[in-house]
Every structure is written in C-alpha cells, then in structure tokens.
C-alpha cells in the first residue's frame, strides 16, 4: 500500500502544472526508499522530465511494495485543482491498484475532499542518463530566466545561450529583428537567491528551441533559483530544487548534423 501525505498540496499542484503541457501520460514510480520518481519524455523526444520526491518531501510516507501508477496528467491536474494550496494532500493506492485516491484536508474548516483517479497502463521506454560532465553551470533567479525565455520567444523560435566566465548572453535572431540580454555574474550576499553564479570550465555557445524553454520555465513557481548545466553539442540540464527532491528537464540542443 502507498500512503504519501504532503504537508501542503501546493508542491504537487505546481509540479503537475509544470510538466503536464510537455507530457500527457506518465508513470509515477513509488518505492519506500526513493519516494516518488518520474521519468517522462515528450512526443518529439527533445525534452525529458525527471522528478524526484524523496520520502522527506512528505509529512508521512509509506510504500510497502514498489508501485507504478500510470496517470493521465490532464486528468490529475483537474483533480489537483479541486484542492487549495494550503490543504493537506494525501495520495493513497492499494498494492495492485486500478485507481489512485487523492484526499485533501482543510483541518481548520473540517473539510475533507476525496477523489479517485483511474489508472492506465502506460508503455514508456526509460532513457539512461549518466551523471554528465559539463562545460559550465549557471545558477540564476528562476524568475529572471523565465522572463528571458518568454520575452525572447516573441522574436525567434530559437534562443542562443552564450556563457563566458563573467556573463550569460541570450540571443534571438528572428524575422522582425534581433535581440540580446546579458546577465552579468554577481554575488548578492544580502539575498543569495538573487545571485547569478557561473562555474565555467569552458565557454559555451548553444542554441535551443524557444518553445521547449518556455515549457521548462513553467516550473518557475517551484523554486527561487534554477541551475542550468551546459555542454557543447550535448543536452542541457535545467534543475529546480525542491525540499527533498528536484524537478529536472533535459533538453536536446539544435545544431548542424
């Protein structure tokens, strides 16, 4: 039996809102040691989502037997919208479940809402992602990255990211003209989440689809900062840290074959 109780429903609500536009169906893997993990790839096989919610993400967590819960994320999102962000949220499943029970509790108002979501058999192939060497790692405020990704998409369907040891430059070249935004590395000791940190082994110049970057920044409400790891001619990794877990996106770049 699985029983995972979140102190607030907001984490799960934000996670599902962050991924449901990229992948429609996905398997939730549940185990006592790892908590809940997800690996899902979008239909175009360009963007991969890796979610980890350790048992420490939960107020209470037990999972007697490893479970795979196949979910339609649009349906899950409909149910998660029924609860308030500050409600307790509990996910419950039997050992051979055909449905997932989702319970919201508002202890102050003595309100309990229960929903049952039908599960599906989802055939998904799993990709092996090794801990990658990277040419550079950038940590910046998640909102600042979201603004660049959203603004630049209006100019071009591609966004070029150029990193040197003291700045990150985003460049868009479109039919109406061009644009660039430079963010300089800075350490803000009063407010560390406002810092822009660049850890550079080698300068990087990579191009990504603006559409996919705009899917990734849907995770912005989950974390104050995002860490981006880039390597020449290889997929980039975008990480939003959660308390006791993470939501990572792996995005294949654009380049000449």
């Amino acid at each position: 039996m699985l029983e995972g109780k979140f102190e607030t429903a907001s984490t799960m609500k934000k996670v599902i809102e962050a991924i449901k536009d990229s992948v429609k169906l996905c398997n939730l893997n549940c185990s006592q040691n790892d908590g809940i993990t997800v690996q899902a790839i979008d239909d175009s096989r360009v963007l991969l989502i890796a979610l980890k919610l350790d048992p420490s993400c939960f107020q209470e967590f037990r999972c007697d037997k490893d479970l795979v819960l196949g979910l339609d994320l649009e349906s899950l999102s409909k149910i998660l919208r029924q609860g308030n962000p500050e409600d307790y949220l509990t996910l419950i499943a039997e050992d051979s479940p055909d449905s997932l029970l989702i319970v919201f509790e508002d202890s102050k108002k003595d309100r309990i809402s229960e929903f049952s979501l039908k599960l599906m058999d989802i055939d998904s192939d799993v990709l092996t992602i090794d801990e990658m060497e990277h040419d550079c790692a950038i940590t910046l405020p998640a909102a600042a990255f979201a603004k660049v990704a959203r603004d630049m998409k209006t100019l071009s369907e591609s966004l070029q990211i150029l990193v040197t040891k003291d700045s990150v430059k985003f460049k868009a070249d479109g039919s109406i003209g061009t644009g660039s935004v430079i963010l300089r590395a800075r350490t803000n000791l009063d407010d560390t989440k406002e810092s822009i940190l660049i850890d550079l082994n080698k300068p990087v110049n990579l191009t990504f689809g603006a559409k996919y970057l705009n899917d990734i920044v849907k995770a912005t409400p989950l974390a104050d900062t995002v860490t981006i790891k880039l390597t020449d001619k290889a997929p980039a990794m975008f990480e939003y840290k959660l308390q006791g877990g993470f939501l990572r996106y792996y995005l294949a770049p654009k380049f000449e074959d």
Partner: peptide
Amino acid sequence: PSHQQTLTKFFGGS
C-alpha cells in the same frame, strides 16, 4: 539553419 536534435541520440534507451 541548425537542426533540432533528439535526446535518444545522446542517452541510451532500455
């Protein structure tokens, strides 16, 4: 123009 690559080119499948 550059071409969109796919992840399967970089990551092993199972």
